[in-house]
Design a protein around this nucleic acid. Structure first.
Length: 255
DNA sequence: GCTCATGTTCCCCT
DNA sequence: CAGGGGAACATGAG
């Protein structure tokens, strides 16, 4: 699930359900805590009040006074609110208890995790992360790609270049912009990069609104999981291959 | 049984 | 040093 649009949905869930509220307690699997223990997390969070959460790329950043909780969702993570449901799902790796219900970090594959940091030192957890893909302006986008070698797909996938894109949003943006994922950056004209920026922005905004990359019939994402995937624009049979280490779909005719 | 999965990191090559 | 390829991580789905 989680690329920028999904995490944006989780941010809204956290804002609505946890911001401004006092945490009664947290229960969690030790495995999912990457730099603390359940005891340390409980101690740090109990009776503290969450402020407004922020999203940076695929990270959800949840400050509560001097401490900040950071969540990354890997490939299968999600954040869900279940008001009166009390039974714990086997994939609930962390549950934050509030007076009116529980917020659950659910993650089947356990890639990703939950970190705890001092609010003034969260960058030690985030590491080198480029600017958020939705906040980046066009000239900054162009500037960050300019000195990059290799394929456009691998650059867009690199969280140090810009943060938030993933396999689906990259393929989707490239398809809308009619740019081949294999194209080297230096082969692209300024107008190509500019068009790519605008399409990426639209893909991210439309998706973030829904909290996921929608599998619309008019989008590549709607075609990629079908048995005979065809380009929604020209009906050509889609190419499928590995680029930047990930399964990639693209249209050989219009990209 | 086998392949693949919306992510990240680490190691080895070129 | 920068990129590319592949494996590992953990676990379910088709």
């Amino acid at each position: 699930m989680p690329e920028l649009p999904d995490v944006e949905g989780f941010r809204r869930t956290f804002q609505r359900r946890a911001a401004g509220k006092q945490v009664r307690g947290a229960s969690c699997d030790a495995e999912i805590l990457r730099n603390s223990s359940p005891q340390a997390l409980g101690r740090a969070m109990r009776n503290s009040t969450f402020e407004a959460p922020e999203r940076w790329g695929k990270w959800l950043i949840c400050p509560a006074g001097a401490n900040t909780m950071l969540m990354h969702f890997g490939m299968t993570g999600e954040l869900i609110w279940l008001g009166d449901e009390t039974e714990r799902h086997p994939d609930d790796r962390m549950v934050l208890h509030f007076s009116d219900g529980d917020l659950r970090y659910r993650n089947m594959r356990k890639l990703g995790g939950v970190w705890l940091a001092r609010t003034d030192a969260i960058e030690e957890v985030l590491g080198p992360l480029g600017p958020d893909a939705l906040e980046l302006r066009e000239n900054a986008f162009i500037g960050r790609l300019k000195d990059r070698k290799g394929s456009i797909k691998s650059a867009l996938m690199d969280q140090k270049v810009l943060a938030g894109l993933g396999n689906l949003t990259v393929d989707e943006s490239l398809w809308h912009a009619r740019v081949s994922p294999r194209a080297s950056i230096k082969s692209l004209a300024r107008t190509d990069i500019s068009r790519l920026y605008r399409k990426m922005n639209k893909v991210l905004r439309d998706s973030a609104k829904e909290g996921l990359v929608p599998a619309k019939r008019t989008w590549l994402t709607g075609a990629r999981s079908q048995r005979d995937p065809r380009c929604p624009r020209c009906r050509a049979k889609l190419n499928r291959g590995t680029i930047a280490g990930r399964t990639t779909y693209w249209c050989p005719s219009c990209q």
